[in-house]
């Protein structure tokens, strides 16, 4: 469990990068098939129609954004913070979202997005069957679990990456995270 929550502490950077890149390719391919796309490091949404390039670029942009957040805050706390560790953590943090894309296997979310674009009434968006209801409810719960898991991974791994110890160190991370997230809204 400790190795899953903080792989940076136990595995060498080359080994981790190789595994992470394989997972990245597999995860992006899965996301394309499940019609998923990513807007930011904490965003996952489904569309009725997507392009391979769009999903790939959105995933790369989410990874680079998270890498920048970790690297900038890591450098502020400890100048010895390495880029490769930040990149590895960013790639690793995508894994919970790759699993979440499975929840669109029945196309529930793509259908809802399509309806949202074509209808004005919110009642049209309500789940029409029990299966849809189960899919949406379980997705909501699992999304929250995925977010909590990501927060835990960041907490433990950032400690290894930057030797962060104090609450102030984590406040720097949160500050840089929010700044880059807000800036990205204006830039993209």
């Amino acid at each position: 469990m400790k190795k899953l929550l903080n792989p940076i502490e136990f595995f060498g950077e080359k080994k981790l990068l190789t595994i992470n890149l394989i997972v990245f390719i597999a995860g992006t391919t899965l996301a394309v098939f499940m019609k998923a796309t990513f807007g930011s490091p904490i965003d996952l949404h489904f569309a009725s129609e997507i392009s391979v390039l769009n999903t790939l670029l959105s995933n790369i942009s989410a990874i680079l954004m998270m890498t920048a957040i970790l690297f900038i805050s890591g450098k502020i706390i400890n100048l010895k913070t390495r880029f490769i560790d930040c990149l590895n953590l960013s790639l690793y943090l995508r894994i919970p979202y790759y699993f979440l894309t499975f929840w669109n296997i029945t196309g529930t979310f793509s259908d809802m997005t399509s309806k949202l674009l074509n209808q004005n009434s919110i009642t049209e968006l309500l789940p029409s069957s029990t299966i849809d209801m189960i899919v949406i409810t379980s997705f909501s719960i699992l999304s929250l679990i995925a977010l909590a898991l990501k927060a835990l991974i960041v907490y433990f791994s950032f400690k290894t990456i930057s030797n962060a110890k104090k609450i102030a160190d984590y406040l720097i991370l949160v500050g840089v995270f929010l700044t880059i997230l807000i800036l990205s809204l204006f830039l993209f």
Binding site: I8, E9, F10, F11, G12, E13, K80, D85, T160, N163
Partner: peptide, 14 residues
């Protein structure tokens, strides 16, 4: 030691 480079570096810094 079977750990990563940043782990050992942090121990040394401490």
């Amino acid at each position: 030691l079977g750990v990563s480079y940043p782990t050992v570096r942090n121990q040394l810094d401490d």
